[in-house]
Design a protein around this nucleic acid. Structure first.
Length: 279
DNA sequence: ACCTGACCTCGTCT
DNA sequence: AAGACGAGGTCAG
């Protein structure tokens, strides 16, 4: 709680967790489900929404200290000491990462903007126009043809089915939060279009499972580059079984905050390669 | 059980 | 300027 002043908003927004954020006149405006969040230079610690979103309930010093036992992570944390993991609106997070498969950040952002514009509620704030993230019901009842107009390609049917699953109660986020990590991941993977990587993103970024470690191309690259002794990763993509084996070893190595480790390593490596973030 | 290929679309790079 | 390339995966055979 006491080190909230350390939060680096830019680094946090630009770490591939969220996509519906824009900066106007040095203020960030973002959509989190049914809410519009506004962030100035410093966090307004009074707002409950902001506290929840930035996970002020986490003992950040303790987490950093624990992860710093690993030298590579320590360096990444040193470079981005104010980056946090965000606690997002679960439905938005769920759709966001389903839509992220085999794509890059500008692409993902465009798709989500179009979805919001087409199916989300319009709001005017500070004289600017915003669209809230669509409600599950709205997406569930949307036609395949209309969803497809948002440039989702083959992910169209994933989104439709995933929204229906939530709308009909097959997927219930508050129940998932109560399950342990692996049970919750198995549940999410039942949804058409959600594999282990996407499930891990949803769990880490919206369902409080800090031991979730999304193993994407970047993380695999990082493991090859810096952890050839600890984890033998040789391929660009991995099978389901390798995913689980690797995940077990990673949690063993980093501990229960492994998800935070992943985020620091990911951010650091992407910055090395100057990948694009949000505008 | 593993492995491989196909997959939509779009921004970027030639 | 048109064409190729690849991007934070998943599913099906």
């Amino acid at each position: 709680m006491k080190d909230n002043f350390e939060v680096n908003i830019d680094d946090t927004i630009n770490s591939g967790q969220v996509f519906l954020w824009k900066k106007f006149n040095s203020k960030w405006y973002g959509i989190n489900g049914e809410k519009i969040l506004i962030l100035g230079d410093k966090l307004n610690g009074k707002s409950k929404d902001i506290q929840k979103f930035f996970r002020f309930d986490d003992d950040f010093q303790k987490i950093k200290k624990q992860l710093s036992k690993d030298n590579v992570a320590k360096k990444a944390i040193g470079n981005f000491p104010g980056m946090r993991i965000l606690r997002q609106d679960p439905f938005q997070c769920y759709i966001s990462f389903i839509v992220s498969s085999n794509s890059n950040i500008p692409n993902i952002q465009t798709r989500l903007q179009k979805l919001s514009q087409k199916f989300g509620e319009k709001k005017i704030l500070h004289g600017k126009e915003f669209f809230l993230f669509p409600k599950p019901e709205k997406l569930a009842n949307a036609s395949i043809a209309n969803i497809a107009k948002c440039g989702l390609g083959y992910r169209t049917k994933y989104v439709k089915k995933a929204a229906v699953a939530v709308n009909e109660g097959m997927v219930d986020f508050s129940s998932l939060k109560k399950l342990d990590y692996l049970e919750a991941r198995n549940e999410l993977c039942q949804v058409f279009g959600i594999g282990k990587k996407v499930a891990d993103c949803i769990l880490l970024f919206s369902l409080d499972k800090l031991e979730a470690v999304p193993l994407d191309r970047w993380v695999l690259r990082i493991l090859q580059k810096y952890y050839s002794k600890e984890f033998q990763v040789t391929t660009k993509t991995i099978t389901d079984k390798t995913y689980d084996n690797l995940h077990d070893k990673i949690v063993e190595h980093f501990g229960k905050y492994a998800g935070y480790a992943q985020q620091f390593l990911f951010k650091n490596e992407r910055e090395n390669f100057e990948k694009k973030w949000l505008g």
